[in-house]
C-alpha cells in the first residue's frame, strides 16, 4: 500500500503580504516559504499510519507543483520522513491546473491526502478536483483517519457535530486540523538524509489555467477597540446600534 501527500509551497504564516504590478501579483520579495500547514499535518498522519502499519504501507511520497525554488520545501518534507518526492516543474497556475498535474502521479497510489486548503490562495479545490479526475471517492474535512482492513475509517467535521464514514481504497482524503496533533520537527538524521532521497522532477502535462487574478485587495485595517464599562449597558446598545450598526 502507498500513500501520496500533495503539498503546496506557501509563504510563512507570519509573512507581511504585499502586492505589485497594480495589485495583480503577489510580491514574493523576502518571503520565507513553508509547507502548507494542513499538508504538513496530512504528511504527519501519513507517516504515523506507515509506522503503525507493520510494513503494510510500503511508502509515503509527496508531490508538489512548482519551480525549482520550491525544492527546500520538498526537502523539508523528506527530512520529516517522506520516502520520496515528485515535483512537477511548472508554475502552479490555478487549482484545475494543479489537480491535472497531480492526477498523473496520484493514480499509482492507494490513499491520496490533500490539505483542506492552502494558506496562500485558499481555493480549497484541488482535493475535490483530483478525486473527480481520478474517479475515486473522496471525503473532505477529515479530522481522523485510520486503516481498517481494506477500508479507511474516517471522522469528518460537519456543522454541529462529526460524522464517521468509511471508504474503499483508492480514495482521496481532504484533511483538516485534528488529523494529527502537530507537525513533526525534522530530526538531524532526517535532515542529512533528505538530499539522498529520490526527488523526481517531472515535465508538466498540457492543461489549461481556468482562472486569472484581476486584483488583490488588502483587508481594511482593524478598527480600534472601544471599551465600555460593564455597568453601562445603555451606552453599549447605543454604540452597537448607531456606530457599529450591528443591531
Amino acid at each position: 500500500m502507498k500513500i501520496l501527500v500533495c503539498i503546496s509551497n506557501v509563504p510563512d504564516t507570519t509573512t507581511k503580504i504585499k502586492f505589485k504590478e497594480d495589485n495583480k501579483v503577489f510580491d514574493t520579495t523576502g518571503v520565507q516559504w513553508i509547507i502548507n500547514p494542513w499538508d504538513e499535518l496530512a504528511l504527519t498522519r501519513a507517516l504515523e499510519l506507515k509506522e503503525g502499519s507493520g510494513g503494510k504501507i510500503e511508502k509515503v511520497s509527496v508531490a508538489l507543483v512548482g519551480d525549482k525554488s520550491s525544492e527546500p520545501t520538498i526537502r523539508k518534507a523528506l527530512a520529516i520522513g517522506a520516502d520520496d518526492a515528485f515535483r512537477v516543474d511548472t508554475d502552479p497556475g490555478d487549482s484545475f491546473y494543479v489537480a491535472t498535474q497531480l492526477k498523473e502521479i496520484a493514480k499509482d497510489y492507494d490513499i491520496v491526502l490533500c490539505g483542506i486548503e492552502s494558506s496562500d490562495y485558499t481555493s480549497s479545490a484541488v482535493g475535490g478536483m483530483l478525486s473527480e479526475m481520478l474517479e475515486w471517492p473522496s471525503v473532505s474535512s477529515v479530522s481522523r483517519l485510520n486503516i481498517e482492513g481494506d477500508d479507511v475509517s474516517i471522522r469528518r467535521e460537519i456543522d454541529g457535530g462529526q460524522e464517521i464514514v468509511s471508504s474503499q481504497m483508492p480514495f482521496v482524503g481532504i484533511v483538516q486540523k485534528g488529523i494529527a496533533l502537530e507537525p513533526r520537527i525534522p530530526a538531524m538524521r532526517g535532515i542529512m538524509m533528505a538530499r539522498k532521497k529520490p526527488l523526481n522532477v517531472l515535465e508538466p502535462i498540457e492543461a489549461e489555467t481556468l482562472t486569472e487574478y484581476e486584483n488583490f485587495e488588502m483587508p481594511p485595517p482593524k478598527a480600534a477597540v472601544k471599551l465600555v464599562d460593564e455597568e453601562n449597558v445603555k451606552e453599549l446598545v447605543e454604540l452597537l446600534k448607531n456606530e457599529a450598526k450591528a443591531i
Partner: peptide
C-alpha cells in the same frame, strides 16, 4: 546552506513549541 537553515528552523520550532 539549505541544511543549516533547516537545522536552525528545527531548533527554533523545538524551542518555541
Amino acid at each position: 546552506t539549505e541544511e543549516q537553515e533547516m537545522i536552525r528552523q528545527a531548533a527554533r520550532d523545538f524551542a518555541q513549541r
